[in-house]
Amino acid sequence: MFFNLPFIVAALLVILGIITMLIKRNLIKMIMGLALVEAGVNLLLVSIGYRAGGIAPIFTSAPDGVMVMPTVQAMTLTNIVIGIATTALLLSFVMVIYRMYGTANAEKVRKLRG
């Protein structure tokens, strides 16, 4: 149970983020939901890479023991960077929309439809 906790939390974060994206009409809050999903995915990645008793793969004066394969950590870092770029882009879109439309409500930002 304890070792599954990170996975459960990751799934909860993803689900919370998705629910936020579905029920919140404010575009900024939707992007917050997206960030929650991203955090959940990051947590899942990192918890997959966890090995009980493993040591960091730094070879200089490393203690004895099993080293952890750092692939998922690298993936998480990459995803964090991608996430920053995406969030910045999305927020700047919302800024422009708010300036032009005077609202950031998803139900009013719908000039494109039909």
Binding site: L22, K24, R25, L27, A106, V109, R110, R113
Partner: peptide, 17 residues
């Protein structure tokens, strides 16, 4: 059919999921 294309972002996400 046409009213389904609401243009509301939440609906787009809902259809996808």
């Amino acid at each position: 059919l046409v009213p389904l294309h609401t243009g509301v972002l939440n609906d787009y996400v809902l259809w996808f999921l």
